[in-house]
Design a binder for these strands. Sequence first.
DNA 1: ATGCTAAACGGACTGCGGTCCGCTTATTAT
DNA 2: ATAATAAGCGGACCGCAGTCCGTTTAGCAT
Lengths: 230, 230
Amino acid sequence: MGTVSLIPIRPRVEAVHSAAARSAPSAASARAGHRPGGQPAAESERRDAARNRKLLLSAARDLIEECGADGLTMDSLAARAGVGKGTVFRRFGSRAGLMMSLLSEAEAQFQAGFMFGPPPLGPGAPPLERLLACGAERIGWVLEFGELARAADASAYNRFDVPAAVLWRRHLELLLREAGMSADPWLMAGALAATLEPERILHSVRVHGMSPGSLVESWRELATRVVRGT
Amino acid sequence: MGTVSLIPIRPRVEAVHSAAARSAPSAASARAGHRPGGQPAAESERRDAARNRKLLLSAARDLIEECGADGLTMDSLAARAGVGKGTVFRRFGSRAGLMMSLLSEAEAQFQAGFMFGPPPLGPGAPPLERLLACGAERIGWVLEFGELARAADASAYNRFDVPAAVLWRRHLELLLREAGMSADPWLMAGALAATLEPERILHSVRVHGMSPGSLVESWRELATRVVRGT
DNA sequence: ATGCTAAACGGACTGCGGTCCGCTTATTAT
DNA sequence: ATAATAAGCGGACCGCAGTCCGTTTAGCAT
């Protein structure tokens, strides 16, 4: 036991959701291309699989428009798309995986903004300004896609280790380092990221009626103080 | 409609879990005493009910010791305690409610510490010192009871509005005000509270191997900077 | 065209949290 | 003691996420 042979079939899910195949990760990741960022999984996907993926994503968007993200069930999705339930799970691995796939375009755009976009969001501006800008951007993003994001996080035991979350935190960490942060930048980045989690932001807005502006203002205060400290 | 008459039976759950009876809260809370803090619900609880509650709590502790908090299922609990499943839900309302009941003693002790205990945790010390102390205390508390706390939070749609969470946030808010916080203290308190959430802390420790000491140190840095800003 | 094989498929099945509702029992008034 | 009644009880039942495994099919080699 312990060798790779214990992975007989390996369904082609779109992203790395669970830390399956704990051992021998090199051998496991060597075979068959997990497209890390996007979902098309370009290299080799059977026609019917691709067709069903599109069908499912489209049906999911329809259902969410009708019933909201929380109202979408995997059964209803399968029925609406006219495929079996097993197919849904084969494609997306889990409900959270499905939600992530639905988010991936918006997520990619957001990432592109702070990584390659124009200043002050993208590179070129001083770190504190970038921090303020990307916080504001994030708040707006959450207000637009938060319901989906929350559904994607929900019950994901490892929501902090999902690629998008790791990248976001790393970005904050980088900015803190550039700003000369003396304390542990990884932990401080985590603290800042915690502030901007969808569930919390949506709760502030929807339950307590906070305005987006006040959230942005609060982020400005927080980020400024954290960076000013050193 | 809209009057109180739509609450025919009212099961005697131990705490206010969901925001039921949205309207006429005064009339609703007027009849029959919800002991706000503790669970005994002293005034009028039938003998068998009290016996079963103790049975259930004890069985729950046993099961958690055997299988961990995540391994406890409501069915197994009912079976172990020798009662029907309906009884479990009548007592605790939900899985999260059960976990909160299990936590309530530890929670109360924690609260007593920062509200009435000796300085620097309790009143008497300057606000920043109290903030540092209560953060450290919280981190230790989470490391001890975090698994339960996470199970109590999990899937609680309104985990932020649960009494314990509200009190904790209010305490942070109070300290910030005393420290002369110029920005919105409620939002800043939320940001600080987010940093200390069980799920995040446990993730740092269990997945990334951070030491409790580094977490405390990081909290010190964060809190200091936030307060120093004004 | 034909046959082979790995991938994909579908839907029955499991386990869990939570609800419902008819039955039982503790408590209180008479 | 007895009757009335509200609280408590139990377990069948539901909806949902996620799994399993026998069957079908796309893609390729010949």
